[in-house]
Design a protein around this nucleic acid. Sequence first.
DNA 1: TTTATTTACGCAAACGTTCCCGGTAACGAT
DNA 2: ATCGTTACCGGGAACGTTTGCGTAAATAAA
Lengths: 343, 343
Amino acid sequence: MKFEAVTIKDIAKALGLSTSTVSRALRDSYEISPETKRLVIEYAQKINYQPNPIALSLKERKSRSIGIIVCEIANSFFSQVINGIESIANTRGYNIIIAQSKESAERELADLQFLASRSVDGLIISVTTETTDYSFLKDLYQRGLPIVFFDRIVNEIATHKVISDNVKGSYDATKHLIDQGYKNIALVTSSEGLFITKERMAGYQAALKDHGFVVNADYIKHCNHSGMIQAEIEDAVNQLWGLRKKPDAIFAASDKLTTGVLRLLKARKVKVPQQVGLIGYSNADYTELIDPPLTIVKQPAFEIGQIAIELLLQMIESKRPVTDFETRVLNTELIIRASTRSK
Amino acid sequence: MKFEAVTIKDIAKALGLSTSTVSRALRDSYEISPETKRLVIEYAQKINYQPNPIALSLKERKSRSIGIIVCEIANSFFSQVINGIESIANTRGYNIIIAQSKESAERELADLQFLASRSVDGLIISVTTETTDYSFLKDLYQRGLPIVFFDRIVNEIATHKVISDNVKGSYDATKHLIDQGYKNIALVTSSEGLFITKERMAGYQAALKDHGFVVNADYIKHCNHSGMIQAEIEDAVNQLWGLRKKPDAIFAASDKLTTGVLRLLKARKVKVPQQVGLIGYSNADYTELIDPPLTIVKQPAFEIGQIAIELLLQMIESKRPVTDFETRVLNTELIIRASTRSK
DNA sequence: TTTATTTACGCAAACGTTCCCGGTAACGAT
DNA sequence: ATCGTTACCGGGAACGTTTGCGTAAATAAA
């Protein structure tokens, strides 16, 4: 089955003109008479001419499409970011190609190769928690592919980045738990190498110190797949519950981790917030419906996406190489609900 | 900024061959000597040659990309379907372009035009609840664009369709409520024109009749935007609560409707399931965490996506026009939890 | 040795555009 | 009458591939 489209040639033939004239008329060139222009434009409209984007891409050597790599689109944070990206990209005539890494460095590499081979004009990516080797990404970038990082950014590559204020977000979350009277606050977070993990840990630790608590390494648990596999959350919780002094509050530093921890707490019949307070990063729109309603740190996901694509388009459409990069840091929102309302 | 790639010409020049020879060597043509092939292939590998998909697209007159239109990717059902589509598309060398209609017929049309102009090779779509005019879709289809419908299918167009067994799913849900002792069972569903609405209504009505209940039209409420706007759900619930005999159970026929109804019930301090039982279509992975844990009808979303893309690729890659269309109907799963455990 | 066949490669067109060069009128100025 | 402008328009190359056709050399058959 094939889908036959009308081309500039058809117009030229029908009107007894050359393709160049038609092309110019359509692009409103000054060296075409108003009369001819009218003729061409009217006829083009009549037969519903649509320029072939593929031919254009070949000529201009760009595809007017940009790649997005996230670990999972079913994750509310990422789907909201994508919404933000799409909202701008569409109006600027770009289409987006989404690939999911599923928190696997291997799949991420495959996605990267796939997108590169489809010659996207730019890339927006939140890397895997697994990723340690950025050489392919670096190579792509050095060969001229514009890249913008968001959320899980990589600092080794100098380009635009957009994140939320992880330190402050975590500080606020931890401080809230302290204010509520919790004493033994555990942190369940992603893999140690990740920049956002470091930042969220820093915020957590700073809040503890500022309020006269000591940081207990036993209370900090890393899930190297960010909760994509339930078993690692289970390990974390088991270890936490194996301690002499069990935590009386948990701060979960990502969407999947938050629901994962709650699931396990429920399985253990631990009462939230009476026995354990729970606060988590989340962008889900159902956290108020959960039992108990969840106190969350919410990231401005949609805006993150919008800013990321703006910065990327800026790079793509820039005449000369961009050298002045910025890291945009957005504020998070703390939404207080019952899951931390114990004491 | 530009991203310079290595072409077949570079190889030809470097090796003192013609581009045709290089092309043929790369495609392992019989009329190229083994020696030359080895040379070309080795060199291509060395400089990491990647065929330009755009040039190929122009030549073959296809883009190896397929369009997907759903109302919202943040919806778990749709993101799972997309996962299914992607899982197959990627292995077959196709990339997917996702567009969101946001339940707006206007945006849907714009998406359609956008995808058509990007010359996708095929389309997988679940139409808007608003859509009543299928002429553009029909036109596209008649001009040769392969289309597969899923979920919200349109019967006026004869092509492959894949849905879940809506009648049975709704029958089971309604029967479950009856079995639990509920007597006044309301249905909150999408706009009346939609095929899946009709089917789900049919299942609901059949179950009622089969068990000696009369169908009360007052108990059937339509939300024309499928719950995308909270106000319409509010209207529905308000009307239901305005009845002399209030319903003692609600069957919500979509993801957004289910959480939307629950939200309103909570706002009214209605106890679920004691005062009102609640069952809903949902593919969210957190329904067990909700208060109360939700009884749901779950669709095989991932499989729906996989089958849809299989059927589409079959159409795309078929030499002669496909005339034999099938409608695949998959079974839903009823997951019983506390929200219907009243009596 | 001559002719027919095979082997191995190059030429050029095509896909749909854009755009750099031209070129041809018409017209006013010299 | 000649020249320089201006206004319009067409020819053709180019973007990176594939592919039908042509053809030289090498080999086989006569």
